[in-house]
């Protein structure tokens, strides 16, 4: 027969151990469920009265051309940032993977943008891109006319540029960690066989680095689809930079339509969830292939 103390431990200890995780899960789920519930109401910040209106907020959004434009701009923004940041991050990571003199200093410099709050980075770039800013000064040196960086269709590309400056180091760090964890033997064999550099990159590095590339794409996809601060600090969301997060902000805090704003947020959450699930399953397959556990 077990002592009373032991039986108590066996019975309650597992629950006690998972309690912090449970509290954390509730902490995450409660606001989320609340957001879903509010998105089904006509909740306005200027009125304490709210009614259940079913899917009206969602249907209103689907009928609104500015919603589709905002969704399109958001997807375009995410696609552009990922298409630039991941290859650029890979290039930087490959350069930093060489053990040469001064490389530690370069690695430190690389992470400086990451330490900067995005709003500060955006305001700094807003000054750089101003009409009399340094960017137009350099353009003027070659005799070209100043560019309206933060207007017209330029504005989206300019914000993508700021994003690239800010987050390419993030991709580079993930990919550098990946490069440094790759086994040395396949490279030694390739060198013995005198395989060309591009062949080694294409047939060895890229396949082995695939899980890390997917990881970088995954993180940057989620972040880009949720982008708010860079846009709001630079253009306040002009018609060509009205990302979903910014439009939700306007809907909630300028027009007081909390219910409708939350419906936008839930829609973008669904997009992020679907894209993330696809990337995670791609990452799982890549990991199984890389570790030889593929079924």
């Amino acid at each position: 027969m077990q002592p009373v103390e032991r039986r108590w431990q066996d019975r309650y200890l597992p629950y006690l151990i998972i309690l912090p995780a449970l509290v954390l899960t509730i902490g995450i789920l409660y606001p989320f469920i609340l957001a879903v519930v509010y998105s089904l109401t006509d909740y306005r910040l200027v009125s304490p009265v709210r009614h259940f209106i079913g899917l009206t907020n969602y249907l209103d959004s689907f009928r609104d051309i500015s919603f589709w434009s905002s969704l399109g701009v958001t997807l375009l923004y995410a696609a552009l940032t990922i298409m630039i940041e991941v290859p650029l991050g890979l290039g930087v990571a490959m350069l930093l993977n060489h053990e040469i003199r001064g490389m530690r200093a370069f690695r430190f410099i690389l992470i400086i943008p990451l330490m900067m709050p995005p709003v500060i980075a955006a305001l700094m770039w807003k000054m750089i891109m101003a009409e009399n800013g340094i960017l137009n000064y350099f353009i003027g040196l070659i005799g070209a006319a100043p560019v309206p960086w933060l207007a017209h269709t330029y504005s989206l590309l300019s914000i993508v540029l700021i994003d690239v400056w800010l987050y390419t180091p993030f991709c580079a760090i993930i990919l550098l960690a990946g490069l440094q964890s790759l086994p040395k033997e396949p490279y030694e064999s390739a060198l013995v066989d005198r395989a060309p550099g591009f062949f080694i990159f294409r047939r060895l590095t890229l396949p082995m680095l695939k899980p890390f590339l997917i990881l970088a794409i995954l993180f940057r996809t989620i972040d880009s689809l949720r982008m708010f601060d860079l846009v709001y600090a630079t253009t306040k969301g002009s018609h060509s930079t009205m990302l979903m997060q910014v439009s939700a902000y306007y809907e909630a805090f300028r027009w007081y339509n909390m219910g409708k704003s939350l419906s936008h947020m839930i829609i973008i959450w669904i997009v992020i969830f679907i894209v993330s699930r696809m990337l995670v399953s791609w990452w799982n397959r890549a990991m199984q292939r890389a570790t030889g556990t593929e079924r």
Binding site: K126, E131, S155, T234, T235
Partner: peptide
């Protein structure tokens, strides 16, 4: 007016 008028707060 300003070159990038639409971003002028």
């Amino acid at each position: 007016g300003p070159l990038a008028w639409t971003s002028n707060s």
